[in-house]
Design a protein around this nucleic acid. Structure first.
Lengths: 162, 162
DNA sequence: ACCCATATTGGCAGACCATGCCAATATTTT
DNA sequence: AAAATATTGGCATGGTCTGCCAATATGGGT
């Protein structure tokens, strides 16, 4: 697999900020002509370094201004229960993000809902899962930085298949 | 401001998953013809319900597989210091997300770096800020769900200006 | 129930952008 | 230095978007 050069990194950085830039605009900014520029982008897509393109919506304007970070501990850690928990969580549309984490808790989740009522509905639903032990809610008061772009300075593609 | 109808919600949901769908493809899926479809999308953009379009990169493949959740407490909460902290954090490219939160800590941050060494560099940098009291790191072991789409069932646009 | 005002729709023409090839240039290897 | 390889830049083609039009659907008022 090829190493990323300065231009590839530049393209990724630009597309991270605005996926609607045309090949011509991108070409100007990185100092290339549109053709090789489009080609490099196609390669980045095929290498899956670019996963997908998506529209980013405004939560506040959509009336989905409530963000909650939830720490969860399970009571039993048998494989089947862990998998059931993760599958259930992945299927809940209110769950924007979920990671297993080190430390005092097993999972950290980010929940988005319209209001407290919606959040309570979700928590109730979560509590019905039998392997859930503790649920610790921390409400987001204000977003200082949201959906920041990845810092590509240290990025080096791992050699996977195509 | 107009209320969102079923088609608007459907369009937002589709574009959240794939911003590269053409007007024609979108039109088919929502049961409309391309023209009004494109028009509705333009309106959603002008209303800023669609904030922007961005390319989503693959952290693992880029060699940026380390995600850390960091709880921060400040020692002094004078306005100037709080603002200085937030400005500093917003300017750090390793910081993907930062929220003020309720509970035992003041801030919850998501950090992405290539490896532990990169993370340590960032923590050191953070510790140089004089108003920082405690820094509590929780390493992400595995992502169960990442960048989930917003659930639009309860979405109702807040009446802002255009 | 009717009619009018408004908003939305569907299709078409022109401009824009992306894709696939070509020869030409730069880079690397032997 | 010479050959092989990879990358570049430009052009023609095809697809997509944009701005208008008349036609249809929607909603309000009498």
């Amino acid at each position: 697999m090829k190493k990323l050069d300065r231009i590839d990194r530049h393209l990724l950085a630009l597309l991270q900020q605005d996926a609607r830039l045309t090949s011509h605009e991108l070409a100007e900014r990185v100092g290339l002509s549109p053709s090789p520029c489009a080609r490099r982008i196609r390669r980045l897509e095929q290498q899956r370094l670019i996963q997908r393109y998506r529209a980013e919506l405004d939560r506040e304007r959509l009336g989905l201004g409530m963000t909650v970070f939830v720490h969860v501990k399970l009571s039993r850690h048998q494989d089947a229960l862990v998998e059931a928990f993760e599958a259930a969580v992945a299927d809940m549309p209110e769950v924007i993000e979920c990671h297993t984490v080190s430390g005092a808790f097993d999972y950290l989740l980010q929940i988005v809902s319209a209001d407290l009522k919606g959040y309570e509905r979700w928590v109730r639903q979560l509590q019905t899962l039998p392997m859930v032990n503790t649920v610790d809610s921390s409400f987001a008061i204000r977003a200082v930085k949201r959906a920041g772009a990845l810092d590509l300075r240290d990025a080096r593609p791992s050699d996977d298949e195509s």
